[in-house]
Design a binder for these strands. Structure first.
Lengths: 204, 204
DNA sequence: AGATGGATTGACCGTTTGGTTAAGATGATG
DNA sequence: CATCATCTTAACCAAACGGTCAATCCATCT
């Protein structure tokens, strides 16, 4: 029974602690001391590995984005038929974010606070995937298979329906009087309901 | 031509400056010095009017929420037929937020950071309005006028479609390659498109 | 003019914050 | 065992921060 919980390297311990604190407190609210404490190390060591708060936070932001963005983009890039693609992207995203429910708020926050960084570092290489989705939508409209809708609006709608509930969780919970379990159950329902909602909205 | 831009009282000047800084930098990122500077006053005077950062921020948060929440709730409380109600709430919200585009991010942030405050201070008195909307939806489902959908899911969907684009603006802009004017135009389109999207999705 | 009381200020204070430094562990290598 | 680079620490530092204070300003009233 030698306790050895897959001992993480100091660097990995720091990154996990940093991610936890940054997601919880936000960029400005996070303290280097707290990150060090949670990583079980000294504050000096923290600066030894990652020279400054800025560099550490930039790393965490990039890590957070690069973990979630490709997941969605990969689905949008498949050759699935449009409705199935919508079903899959909704399910993929909701499944993932349910296990990382602080991520959306953090990303949305920092991307708004520093759009340029996000724009250049991550999106420009991923835009091709979106082009494929856009053509697919335009084609379906042209063929009369779906109601006239711009790909931009449809993209926004799917993103909104999938991401927002995690950002607005306390508002929704309070507004509807949902307990933690209630909310979780409703989120589970969304895995199928959102896609069908969208499909009913656009099906010709 | 006596320039006199409706000279605000010192207190009002402070509140406006505080709101601007808090929305821009977030709660933790905002500095009392910057608020004082923007209000054109001394930092000591700032504490003379509002004793601490906490009390000032609590005021701004409450102000922000109480400005936007009743607007939506009032619409949900009207006797309009369901589809018209959806049209109106979408239009009302989008019109208002377009002119206060930093508000949603700020509110979502602080409500997540301190849900209890939000829950007790604001929502409990407003939940009655939502009950009316919920009954209306349940009734429409029972009568077969709309597709089976829980009022919770429908509420989340409308909220999502209306609010998220403002939170995810940089992501959407980058993803779709929209200029500032492009984005603004798409948001203008949403004023009518979102409601019709929702109605198509639920109409039996 | 003098007194009163709220509004306003510059100078100051204690604490917290991100960051540094110099001195030691530690462990692999010759 | 000596060497050397990598880790790790306690102690420290300057700057920034929220907040306070005594002193002034200034309009109003007597």
């Amino acid at each position: 029974m030698t306790e050895q919980p897959t001992k993480l390297s100091t660097e990995e311990q720091i990154l996990e602690a940093a991610q936890a604190v940054f997601l919880e407190k936000g960029l400005a609210g996070a303290r280097m001391q707290e990150i060090a404490d949670r990583a079980g190390i000294n504050k000096a060591l923290l600066h030894y590995y990652f020279r400054s708060k800025e560099k550490l936070s930039a790393l965490i932001i990039e890590r957070a984005i690069s973990v979630i963005l490709p997941r969605v983009m990969a689905v949008l890039d498949t050759d699935l038929e449009l409705f199935d693609k919508i079903r899959l992207v909704v399910d993929t995203y909701l499944t993932f974010v349910s296990r990382n429910s602080f991520l959306p708020l953090f990303i949305v926050n920092e991307v708004n606070r520093n759009p340029h960084f996000f724009f250049r570092a991550v999106v420009e290489k991923e835009r091709t995937h979106l082009d494929k989705f856009r053509r697919q939508v335009d084609e379906a409209v042209a063929q009369g298979r779906i109601h006239p809708i711009s790909s931009a609006q449809l993209f926004m709608n799917v993103m909104s329906l999938v991401i927002f509930p995690f950002l607005g969780k306390p508002i929704i919970q309070a507004g509807l009087g949902l307990s933690e379990e209630d909310f979780k159950r409703e989120m589970e329902n969304r895995r199928t309901e959102v896609a069908e909602f969208v499909i009913r909205a656009i099906r010709a």
